[in-house]
């Protein structure tokens, strides 16, 4: 559960880890039944309505103004988004 929290970037408290573990166990038990009928010869469907070759022609548009880009920024500087240090000190 802690590992999943790291992968999903959610800082789970001990209480949350405990609660989620129990709930997810029950849910996973229930949904694991998909493998009963998912035999090798059945193809997977990732799109409900099959289409292919949906393209856009290479013509400019849709560009946001810099003000729109930064409109909701929690923090910014020099026209860019600002975030705290990305890695801790050099190990």
């Amino acid at each position: 559960m802690r590992h999943l929290g790291v992968l999903a970037r959610i800082q789970l408290s001990d209480e949350e880890v405990g609660r989620l573990t129990g709930q997810l166990d029950a849910i996973v038990d229930n949904i694991a039944k998909v493998s009963e009928v998912a035999t090798p010869e059945v193809p997977a469907t990732s799109h409900p309505i099959p289409l292919e070759n949906v393209f856009r022609s290479d013509v400019a548009g849709d560009q946001l103004t810099p003000a729109q880009v930064l409109q909701n920024a929690p923090d910014s500087a020099d026209g860019r988004f600002r975030v705290t240090a990305i890695l801790g000190e050099e190990q």
Partner: peptide, 24 residues
């Protein structure tokens, strides 16, 4: 670090059901 900020934000900003499903 920004990783800590992201994880703390997502913990505070998402409700239980969202966390449940994201973890699942």
């Amino acid at each position: 670090t920004v990783e800590d900020v992201m994880a703390a934000t997502r913990d505070a900003g998402f409700g239980d059901e969202v966390k449940r499903r994201v973890i699942l």
